[in-house]
């Protein structure tokens, strides 16, 4: 069915309204970061990019960046490894209580993260672990590893177990089968899971707030500065944080596509 002119116009307006709703606040943060004044007011009288220079030079920002990167990087690697084997265990083997276990494992995704963070903090205290960026990794894992497992599972369920059997039949051992067949076929899932894991950890605030102790990640610092000590450095760092996410996302989405194109070219 072809939509009528009216429907099409309505859809267009609706689409633009949604995009505006999603992205205008971000744009205003962008404006704030280039405003020379201390507080954002429209129209912006004088523009300045000085805050970006300041952000780059700041030791605080560099430390924050380092903690955030460290946490997100380690969470990504661990989540992907756990997700990979978890997905195989769910998709390949039929064991007792598999379905129940699968649901239990996914449950933390739907818990309010503040409650999860608080629970973990209490637990760390109880066993005498001092919260730091290391405990934040554990907290992030509780929430992100299930998501990574879920993403890789979708891929694992859709692939024919006969492919692995065929590899074994032709002489491949467990490790060779994994390297030659399983990993390459799950690769798209592994890449998406890694991307998700990194971005979710990078942008996470509630879990970090409770579990980083004396350390601080970028989102935590942004919140703290918003509450007290605001300067245009806050929107600047905010924009940089979002820009990093967007860049990673763009790279993550285009690289597989480019690789596919290259492969097709060389194969033809």
């Amino acid at each position: 069915m072809k939509p009528s002119a009216f429907t099409r116009a309505a859809l267009l307006v609706y689409g633009i309204a949604i995009l505006a709703f999603l992205y205008l606040p971000l744009v205003s943060v962008g404006f704030a970061s280039v405003s020379k004044g201390r507080y954002l007011s429209f129209p912006i009288r004088r523009y300045a990019t000085g805050w970006y220079g300041e952000a780059m030079a700041s030791d605080t920002v560099r430390d924050l960046l380092f903690v955030s990167l460290k946490v997100a990087g380690i969470v990504t690697v661990l989540s992907v490894v756990i997700g990979f084997f978890g997905a195989l265990a769910f998709a390949r083997y039929n064991w007792r209580f598999r379905k129940t276990y699968q649901k239990l494992i996914l449950l933390p995704i739907f818990f309010p993260q503040t409650v999860l963070g608080l629970a973990l903090l209490m637990w760390f205290n109880a066993i005498g672990v001092i919260p730091s960026w290391k405990t934040a990794i554990i907290a992030h894992m509780v929430w992100i590893a299930p998501i990574a497992t879920l993403i890789i599972s979708i891929r694992a369920y859709s692939f024919d177990p006969a492919l692995e059997e065929a590899a074994r039949d032709m002489g491949a051992g467990t490790w060779t089968t994994l390297r030659e067949v399983t990993i390459p076929l799950l690769m798209p899932g592994i890449v998406s899971a890694g991307l998700f894991a990194f971005l979710l950890s990078w942008g996470n605030f509630p879990l970090s707030l409770f579990t980083t102790g004396a350390d601080s990640t970028l989102p935590e610092w942004l919140y703290a500065k918003m509450v007290s000590g605001y300067s245009p450095l806050v929107p600047t760092v905010g924009i940089l944080t979002v820009a990093a996410s967007a860049t990673l996302l763009a790279v993550g989405l285009t690289v597989p596509w480019v690789l596919k194109l290259v492969k097709r070219k060389t194969a033809a």
Partner: peptide, 22 residues
């Protein structure tokens, strides 16, 4: 003897050709 050590080979009903290889 494990499957990968046996000198036998099977053509599967689904053929099980590796889709990521030429």
């Amino acid at each position: 003897m494990p499957a990968n050590k046996r000198p036998t080979c099977m053509v599967f009903q689904s053929l099980a050709l590796f889709p990521h290889m030429t």
